[in-house]
Design a protein around this nucleic acid. Sequence first.
RNA 1: CGGGGUGUAGCGCAGCCUGGUAGCGCAUCUGCUUUGGGAGCAGAGGGCCGGCGGUUCGAAUCCGUCCACCCCGACCA
Length: 437
Amino acid sequence: MRLSRYFLPTMKDTPRDAEIVSHRLMLRAGMMQQSSAGIYSWLPLGFNVLKRIEQIVREEQNAAGWNEVLMPTIQPADLWRESGRYDDYGKEMLRITDRHERDMLYGPTNEEQITDIFRTHVRSYKELPGRLYHIQWKFRDEVRPRFGVMRGREFLMKDAYSFDVDFAAAKRAYNRQFVAYLRTFDRLGLKAIPMAADSGPIGGDLSHEFIILAQTGESEVFCHKDWLTTDAVPSNVDYDGDLQPIVDSCLARYAATDEKHDPATCPVDAADLVNTRGIEVGHIFYFGTKYSAPMGAKVAGSDGKEAEVHMGSYGVGVSRLVGGIIEACHDENGIVWPEEVAPFHIGLVNLKVGDTACDGVTEDLYAKLGNAGIDVLMDDSNDRPGAKLATMDLIGLPWQIVVGPRGVAGGVVEVKNRKTGEREEMTPEAALNRFAG
RNA sequence: CGGGGUGUAGCGCAGCCUGGUAGCGCAUCUGCUUUGGGAGCAGAGGGCCGGCGGUUCGAAUCCGUCCACCCCGACCA
């Protein structure tokens, strides 16, 4: 992509209303624009990142054995009356009346909708387990939206659901998602720690929040220091095998949010305990027959008797992750994207557009990197060198290739790693081989 | 929902107390010079000062009211 043809409205000044770093950087980097409180338009750079995150989440859900569907944003109130939540949900639910005076709502979540789909089509235990997910915009009319996309009213969420014949089978579904989440967040370049969460009226221990560590996070967390150095993520997972040992080994290491943490009963020595901050990016839980019972989602068992299915739901805040990743990955100059979610892999900077030698080297590299299938953003604008380099640092592409008259005269370009700041001079051919070799 | 704060050019801000026809920086446009970490000079364009009402000869400024947005707290399957 040529910068001259890319809509990238960056800002030098920080918009006054943006308080936390991810919000500031998203606005300054031209990723999004606020529409109203907690509601944003996604501009090309931000939308690019959002789609990449979504795709990684999707790939890992598919790998774990879930089928993707797409449910509507607008739902009929009657479904929610069945589950009893229409009256319980309160003002957080945006209620709408259509032209025929029918009560509708903008979905804050989809348990009712998915249960309706399941009960319509599934009759026998032989058709279980049921595993469906979608990635769709949600709306929750938060009392106080804040922190940009971190706590928006409209947000993109992956919500997966499982339907099983009994608790043991439901727990296997839960474990699949648990492991899928470890892998998903790892691919996103994040250290996500599962922490026991309030499981509500159902009870039991099958509810975990996945929290990424970031100094600017919303909640205070405590964990064993081993979490900082250990890579808990399994590779080559056999999702059909027994996942319990993976889950158990993960949970053997202490981690808790401040609500759950009690210094009096904490099993970790103070010297081994890390107190830091985190952002909730995923939440999984088992809730049994909470929806299948009132909504009549039953299947016939092997004994011929009908039984209500055991359900679980598993959420990932996709749009929140954009902000969460920035909170975890930035420095004083701007964003530092992890490679897997970076909107472009390389920023190719022509420091002196119009200079025949610089133009030649830059265009040649751009064409060859593009042919190699690498996403490159080429700065072919007439800005000053300082402005170009500052913009590249701001938008945080993992690599920069800087082509300037000084280097080109000596037959070299500069390759810079955004994260480490290391710069290396090499011939254009060597640079090409570095990335496309 | 309680408490606090802010609305003036695309962005960041001053002006308001003490009323007199709107200003600065950046950005934008034109020209020239410049080109390795957010350039310089010269010129130009862009605002019914959040809305409505009131006081006044006259309101960005004073009064009332509404709206929007931000921050703290409570809340957040």
